Amino acid sequence: MMASETEKTHTLLQSCSTESLISSLGLGIFCLVADRLLQFSIIQQNDWVRALSDNAVHCVIGMWSWAIVIGVKKKTDFGEIVLAGFLASVIDVDHFLLAGSLSLQAALTLPRRPFLHCSTVIPVVVLTLKFTVHFFKLKDLWCFLPWMLFISWTSHHIRDGIRHGLWICPFGKTSPLPFWLYVIITSSLPHICSFVMYLTGTRRAMSSKHGIHIDV
């Protein structure tokens, strides 16, 4: 019992270590700089450049956020980080699905927001993944996936929120988020995620390859 409590305390302190806090500060600075750079006319005047640049920023934020959560200690961790970036950027495929076309112009001029941009989808998909991982006894291989998806998709939604607000079905959407709030939430999200995992007692069964234990 004492060893378990010591381990929990260690992992909680690890999520708030100087290294992770500095990484979060760097993430906030990246968000600030990247989104300001995207406002340059050379980017805004070309739809493809604007779309790809915007999606790339989503990807980097997802990768950076997950790297903070796990603490990069091994080369094999890079695969998970790439997956987090992919999950953070792949959401935008729903623009093309709703448009029913591969045309970028059609995807950018939709009559309404596509379904993966509804923030209510996030807890539904995360809980579904957690149940699936538990039901099929995939904890050793995929226990990290619900948490990764949560942080990747949430960071995407928060960033989109500075332009369009958050769409929370069935309650409608919020006003656009202030830019400063977006930067603060995004840079704090890895620590929020780690803290929630601690509070919910989810620190015991994740693979120890990251030096942490997460039980889904």
Rank of each mutant, 00 (worst) to 15 (best):
A3W: 10
L13Y: 10
Q14C: 10
S17K: 01
E19M: 06
E19A: 12
S20F: 07
S20W: 04
L25M: 08
G26T: 04
C31L: 08
R36N: 15
L38G: 00
I43K: 01
D47Q: 14
A51D: 14
S53E: 10
G62H: 00
G62K: 00
M63W: 00
M63T: 08
S65L: 05
W66F: 10
A67M: 02
I70P: 03
G71A: 03
T76V: 11
D77Q: 07
A88K: 02
H95V: 02
F96Q: 00
F96P: 00
L97Y: 11
L97I: 15
A99I: 03
L102A: 09
S103M: 00
S103I: 02
L104Q: 01
L104F: 03
A106R: 05
A107Y: 01
T109M: 09
T109A: 06
P111A: 07
P111D: 09
V121C: 11
P123V: 03
V124I: 15
V126K: 05
L129T: 02
F135H: 14
F136D: 01
L141Y: 13
L141K: 15
W142L: 15
F144E: 11
F144G: 13
L145D: 05
L145P: 04
W147H: 14
L149E: 06
W153S: 11
W153E: 12
T154Y: 03
C169F: 15
P170E: 03
P170C: 01
G172H: 04
P178M: 09
L181C: 11
L181A: 10
Y182G: 10
T186I: 13
S188N: 06
L189K: 01
P190M: 03
P190K: 01
F195C: 10
F195L: 14
L199V: 06
T200R: 13
G201V: 10
R204L: 10
R204D: 14
A205K: 14
S208N: 14
G211E: 07
